[in-house]
Simulated assay, not measured.
Amino acid sequence: MLSSKFKIRSRYMLLALFFLIGGLTGSWLFASNFLEIMTMDYNAPDLVGTKEEIRHNFLEQISTWETFIDSSMFYLINFIPVLFMLPTLGFFAEKRSLYMLGRHRYPSFRKAIYKDVMQYVLLSAMIVVVSFLIFYSIGGLFVYRSIDDIGGFASILPENFYMNHPYLFFVFMVCTIYLSLAIVFSLLSCALILLTDREYKVILLILFIYFLYGKLGVYTESAWFDIFTSFTAFNTLYSTGETFKPLVILLIISFILLVAGVNKTVKNIEE
């Protein structure tokens, strides 16, 4: 049973790592105009200088931390919760097979489910953190800081921290707000997996909750619902603490749904 769990989880770990890093890279390639710069016609009459000089100037303009981070999230912001919870989809395979075939091997079936949920949540959080750190570490070799103040999320950090340590600021962002977002959406995903029967339903429900929650933030102008700002913590007027507010209600909802999902699963299998 342990071997089967490892195979299921490792497969989704690699899939999530690939899609998250690939998604960040793809978004950056298009949103930063990097591809356009590399393929544009440098013989146009309105361009002054040699091809190498013009290309170098264009590349220098987009080679900033701010452009790098913003463009890498430009397209992903529309569906990024799905990438954050992707590793949890392996929980479906365990629910359909291991729980049904090995339910009598668990001393406490309810406890075993909660344990698996926590493992998937931590797994998803780890994949998110590792993916962003790899992407930012590679990008950090080629970009530079162009502004002194990155916004409100740096409010908890020492003065001029971003100016002196831009890379460490983004590491801080990944290991705090992105880690927390991954935990909350993965927990919500596991709860929905226990309550539904198909992967696409979980994905659609995650996106529905994400956009509904975000729209509430826009209409109410309340920091408690502005989940979009939590994902764009690198560009927000909210303070560090305020950026975490949208996660509180989502976390409560996730716990309520998780309890309902565990009860439903135990009841269905024991019948």
Rank of each mutant, 00 (worst) to 15 (best):
F170T: 12
P158H: 12
G139M: 02
P158C: 07
S146P: 05
A154K: 06
A154Y: 07
Y167E: 07
G139A: 03
N160C: 01
R145N: 06
F142G: 01
S146G: 08
I177Q: 14
Y162T: 02
F170R: 14
L179G: 06
Y162W: 07
L141Q: 01
G140I: 00
L168A: 13
P158E: 04
D149R: 11
I177F: 14
V174K: 04
F170E: 15
M163E: 08
M173G: 01
G152P: 15
S155M: 05
I177T: 15
D148M: 08
D148S: 13
C175Q: 11
S137C: 05
G140A: 01
I156F: 08
F142M: 04
F161A: 02
I150W: 13
G139Q: 03
E159H: 12
V174P: 05
P166A: 13
Y144K: 15
Y162I: 03
I177H: 14
A154M: 08
Y136A: 08
N160R: 13
L157N: 04
E159M: 08
P166I: 13
S137L: 08
V143W: 01
L179M: 08
Y178D: 09
I147H: 00
Y162E: 03
I147S: 08
F172I: 07
R145G: 02
L141C: 02
S155P: 06
V174M: 07
E159V: 12
F170I: 13
R145E: 03
R145Y: 02
Y162A: 05
F170Y: 15
N160P: 02
I138N: 01
I147Q: 05
V174G: 03
G140H: 02
S146M: 09
Y162Q: 03
I177G: 13
S155A: 11
V171A: 11
G152S: 15
S155Q: 10
V174L: 07
S146H: 09
C175F: 10
F169G: 09
V143K: 00
R145H: 00
L168S: 14
P158F: 11
E159D: 14
M163P: 00
P166E: 12
Y167G: 03
I150Y: 13
I150R: 11
P158A: 09
G140R: 04
P158T: 07
G140W: 00
Y167Q: 15
P158V: 06
L157S: 05
L141T: 00
F142L: 08
A154W: 06
A154I: 04
Y162V: 04
I156T: 09
F172P: 00
F153I: 10
P158L: 09
N164A: 08
F169C: 10
S155H: 06
Y162K: 03
